[in-house]
Design a protein around this nucleic acid. Structure first.
Lengths: 338, 338
DNA sequence: TTGTACGCGTTATCAC
DNA sequence: GTGATAACGCGTACAA
């Protein structure tokens, strides 16, 4: 368990610690032979420089922190893979934490990572997060921070997103083109920016086609399968069924589908459904679910690249908001049956 | 960006750093008033003790490292949630890394975490990992390590598992009871212990019921949906279709289902299917997939508890292998149609 | 080319 | 009850 330190190597080779250090860092003059000797015996002894000490000294760690609200859906895991692709190649290690959709845990995570002296963070805000003062502070201190997917307009930093408004608009318009008239929207928690935007897209698509949007046709759910089920069951019980539903995300859409099937309704025969943020389930579920696909890997890669840029810029950078392109994958769940 | 240190607080309050330190650690004598004063002004100044420095000094970090091969399937994320439930409550932070099924990345991750002086690790081995020397070394040095799900028999440490043999046996027997005769097994990579065990379960269930097991009825796949698709398509093209398939896991089962449906075969009419390691998709896919469910949260919780026990035991512990109970969720995909 | 000594932010041990 | 100081492991300016 005893870690081998630079001193052990120095003692063994009868030289000073700085020589060892030089051999490893290799920018100051050092005789090639001594260097090789040191490196080989160090390896033999199982020595490697202690990054904790290094972090303490250099005030940075070659580590990037990533915080996501959850990873039971495939969106965040896939985005993280994209980040890793970029970051590992650049010699950064990726420390991942999950906030469990809790703003308290999220803040603790941020502090842990900060204390670990990560060189930057990539964050997607939790459902609960309203107060972003801590992040504002971080940003104003010049701490490299990129937020993605779940962002806050109050935060002036790099952001990576898709155009939620636009794709919600398209998704809704798709239902309209299919001939559906009474379309409901299951909207997400109002605290989340994307909930608002997807709702606006839904409303404006109706406006464009001169269709009325009833207040009662927009129903707030949360983001999980169970939430979709609950809302759908209520609708079924009150007998207030729409022709079609545009759900804020796939899990709520899937929840709605489960409930509809359970009560014997046909999809899309009785109710058509469109989701958002393509999950793996979308194409596997019965019937296959029409959904807006996000370029998960690319979102991750882009966020990582922006972060690296920011880290290297040493504070002189212009916050960018990168809007990536989505895609509407039309499947059976939204088809108009003749 | 400048971090406030203990010195800043000391300077502001005109006292020594040790007094500040005492106020925070609160075990040595210190006057209550000074303590309160220090704590309040420290808070005001935004000071909090730097864990990196603390780690360097104490050679431990109150952090636990978790390494999993992937988290695009729900198994690992759910297990991690279980770990967090236990660890966060005990004041540990959880650092998660993914190996992407690469043994090289896995080893890098281990070293990173080691260098971060995590107090212990919970690991599930990657697909590729054959050489476990590094882990053996870690264990023999008394480093607290718990492995789960993807384990190696060579490693003498705490393990958390379900009884793969038993549940594979039950799953196969279920198909036999349903009246299927020509049952194929899609087995996982032979390097993984659970592949072997699930295969043995498959074979022994046949033995018990005095059914022959043909060599050709056991086909090696890997673990992803695409792998199941590939193998299934090959079978379809060679016209060598079984009555039923017991797949090493859900993704390969789902891949097989996709391919069967694509070619117009009925499930379970033409081919029945059973998976393993209940994924969320199992009950949502069409038809719903019979699968062995693992108690994911409990696996995570148990692994975390064992780790904590080991950490607290200071080296005096007996490696335990905890076998948790699974459950066979019978659904439509494996029903015998009359 | 190599060695000495300081500092990174803490805590613990010793004085006072 | 409080202050000074060594140590944790490392990198580097400076001296040799």
């Amino acid at each position: 368990m005893k870690h081998i330190t630079i001193k052990d190597v120095a003692k063994k080779l009868n030289c000073s610690v700085s020589t060892i250090s030089r051999a490893f860092n290799d920018k100051y003059d050092i005789r090639k032979e001594t260097r090789d000797l040191i490196l080989s015996t160090a390896k033999e002894m199982g020595y490697s420089p202690n990054p904790i000490a290094k972090s303490l000294l250099k005030q940075c760690s070659n580590q990037i922190g990533v915080i996501v609200p959850e990873f039971t859906n495939s969106f965040f895991p896939e985005a993280i893979i994209g980040m890793q692709e970029v970051l590992l190649k650049k010699g950064y290690q990726v420390l991942i934490m999950q906030s469990n959709e809790s703003c308290v845990t999220e803040l603790e995570n941020v502090k842990t990572l900060e204390n670990n002296m990560v060189d930057g963070m990539i964050i997607s805000l939790s459902l609960e997060t309203k107060n972003v003062e801590y992040y504002k502070n971080l940003i104003s201190q010049g701490f490299p921070l990129v937020i993605f997917n779940r962002v806050s307009d109050e935060l002036n930093t790099h952001k990576v997103l898709i155009d939620d408004y636009k794709w919600a608009f398209f998704a809704t318009e798709h239902l309209i083109y299919q001939g559906y008239k009474k379309i409901f929207h299951f909207t997400g928690p109002s605290g989340l920016a994307f909930s608002q935007k997807r709702k606006s897209g839904f409303i404006d698509a109706h406006r464009k086609h001169r269709l009325p949007v009833d207040e009662s046709s927009i129903i707030e759910t949360s983001l999980m399968i169970g939430d979709g089920e609950r809302v759908m069951e209520k609708l079924i019980n009150t007998g207030n069924l729409p022709d079609a539903i545009f759900a804020v995300n796939d899990p709520t859409a899937i929840g709605a589908m489960k409930m509809l099937k359970k009560y014997g309704y046909k999809i899309p025969g009785d109710v058509a459904i469109v989701g958002f943020t393509e999950s793996k389930l979308a194409e596997l579920i019965d019937p296959p679910l029409t959904s807006v696909a996000q370029p998960t890997h690319e979102i991750g890669r882009t966020a990582a690249l922006l972060l690296l840029e920011e880290i290297e810029s040493k504070g002189i950078f212009v916050p960018q908001t990168v809007i990536l392109n989505g895609r509407l994958n039309v499947r059976e769940s939204s088809m108009k049956l003749k």
